[in-house]
Simulated assay, not measured.
Amino acid sequence: MLHVRPRQLLLLARLDAHRHLGRAAEAMNISQPAATKLLQQLEDSLGEKLFERLARGMEPTPYGEILIRYARRVLSDFGTAREEMLALRSGLSGALRVGSVPGAVPELLAPALVEYHRRHPQVAVSVVVETSDVIQAQLEQGDVDLVLGRLTDGHDEAKYASVPLLGESQVVVVRIAHPVFERPTVTLAEMANWSWVLQPPGSPQRGRFEAAMREAGIQTRLDIIETASPIAITALLESSDMAAVMPASQASHYARLGVLRTVPVELPVRVPPICLITREDRALSPAAAQFRRQLLGGG
Score class of each variant (00 low, 15 high):
Trp196His: 02
Val144Glu: 05
Thr220Met: 05
Ala104Gly: 01
Met85His: 15
Leu46His: 13
Glu168His: 02
Ile218Val: 03
Leu198Arg: 09
Pro286Phe: 07
Gly202Glu: 08
Val4Arg: 10
Arg118Gly: 06
Arg282Pro: 11
His155Ala: 02
Gln294Ser: 06
Thr278Pro: 12
Ala27Gln: 12
Leu54Cys: 02
Arg5Gln: 09
Met85Ala: 15
Glu226Ala: 12
Tyr160Ser: 06
Glu48Asp: 11
Arg183Ile: 12
Arg73Val: 04
His117Met: 14
Gly94His: 10
Gly217Pro: 02
Val134Phe: 01
Leu236Gln: 15
Arg73Asn: 06
Ser169His: 08
Val144Leu: 01
Gly299His: 12
Glu115Arg: 11
Ala216Met: 00
Tyr160Val: 03
Ala189Thr: 11
Ser203Arg: 11
Glu52Cys: 00
Gly99Trp: 04
Met242Glu: 09
Glu190Leu: 05
Thr262Lys: 13
Phe181Ser: 04
Gln122Asp: 10
Glu168Trp: 01
Ser162Tyr: 11
Arg82Tyr: 13
Leu284Met: 06
Val134Tyr: 06
Ala25Tyr: 11
Met28Val: 06
Thr185Leu: 12
Ile274Asn: 01
Leu50Lys: 13
Leu295Ser: 08
Arg221Pro: 05
Gln250Phe: 08
Arg270Tyr: 13
Ala211Val: 03
Ser169Asp: 07
Trp196Arg: 03
Arg175Gly: 00
Arg293Leu: 00
Leu75Ser: 02
Glu140Met: 03
Glu59Arg: 15
Val173Lys: 07
Pro201Met: 08
Arg279Glu: 08
Glu59Trp: 03
Leu21Asn: 01
Val128Asp: 00
Asp281Gln: 09
Gly99Thr: 03
Val265Ser: 00
Val129Asp: 05
Pro121Asn: 06
Thr234Asn: 09
His3Gln: 13
Pro106Ile: 04
Pro164Gly: 04
Phe51Glu: 06
Asp156His: 05
Gln170Gly: 00
Gln41Ala: 04
Met58Asp: 01
Ile233Phe: 09
Leu188Tyr: 03
Ser132Glu: 09
Leu15Thr: 12
Val263Cys: 01
Gln205His: 12
Ala95Leu: 08
Ala95Arg: 13
Glu43Arg: 11
Ala17Leu: 09
Pro286Ser: 03
Arg208Asn: 02
Arg150Glu: 02
Ala55Met: 12
Leu2Ile: 06
Arg97Gly: 07
Lys37Gly: 02
Ile218Asp: 04
Ala212Ser: 12
Gln122Tyr: 02
Ser100Leu: 00
Ile231Gln: 14
Gln219Thr: 11
Val259Asp: 07
Leu257Asn: 14
Leu151Asp: 06
